[in-house]
């Protein structure tokens, strides 16, 4: 829920040792805050300004004939919000969601979307200089979805570009096919 995020960011303002460590390294005064979450052993971060709220998992209503990582829609105070399975999005199989799984609601442009992740771990501040570019390599995620990498306490955090993550395939192309036969055939298969 929103209060959680709020209290978390309040904690951040008090500067936990974590962030101090990060900030000391930073040569640039400008810092960016990211909420980090885990999927399996991997840690990802998303811009805190994009995060609207964090809520526990509840089973969404399935939309027919949509890609596997599209888990369905939830009612978020009257808004119908699509929920995406991030693990599945990264081709690591479907998340068997339980009560301890978490949905991170983010705003992309003027749309809301939920990301199903394993757990939310931290809020980190990253200076401009701490951004490392993503090396061109054969990773599990297409590198275009990453805005950069950062090292926090010896862990690598992959910073996601939420806008690219969801807008490119689903919102722009895939589901627009209001009466698209390929989708139907997909469903049949």
């Amino acid at each position: 829920m929103a209060p959680e995020a709020a209290s978390a960011s309040a904690g951040n303002m008090m500067k936990t040792p974590d962030q101090d460590a990060v900030n000391e390294d930073s040569r640039s005064a400008e810092t960016f805050q990211y909420i980090t979450f885990t999927i399996g052993d991997e840690e990802y971060g998303v811009d805190i300004m994009a995060v609207r709220e964090i809520k526990g998992w509840s089973e969404p209503t399935v939309l027919p004939n949509t890609p596997a990582h599209m888990r369905g829609v939830l009612n978020l105070r009257g808004e119908i919000v699509p929920i995406f399975d991030l693990r599945c999005r990264f081709d690591q199989g479907r998340t068997e969601a339980t009560n301890i799984h978490v949905i991170v609601i983010i705003a992309i442009a003027d749309r809301l979307a939920g990301m199903l992740v394993d757990a939310v771990s931290d809020i980190i501040s990253i200076g401009r200089d701490d951004f490392k570019s993503v090396p061109k390599m054969d990773r599990q995620i297409d590198t275009e979805y990453l805005s950069g990498l950062a090292t926090v306490k010896d862990r690598m955090v992959a910073l996601l570009d939420a806008e690219k993550l969801f807008s490119m395939r689903d919102v722009e192309n895939g589901i627009l096919a209001g009466s698209n036969t390929p989708l139907l055939q997909q469903a049949e298969a």
């Binding site: 209503t61 027919p64 009612n75 919000v81 689903d170 589901i175």
Partner: peptide, 21 residues
């Protein structure tokens, strides 16, 4: 509003139990 049109579905609604139908 937040997603895209889905074939065979014209819109969504919220049922009494808070779930989307």
């Amino acid at each position: 509003h937040n997603y895209d049109p889905v074939s065979g579905i014209s819109a969504a609604t919220i049922l009494g139990n808070g779930r989307v139908a």
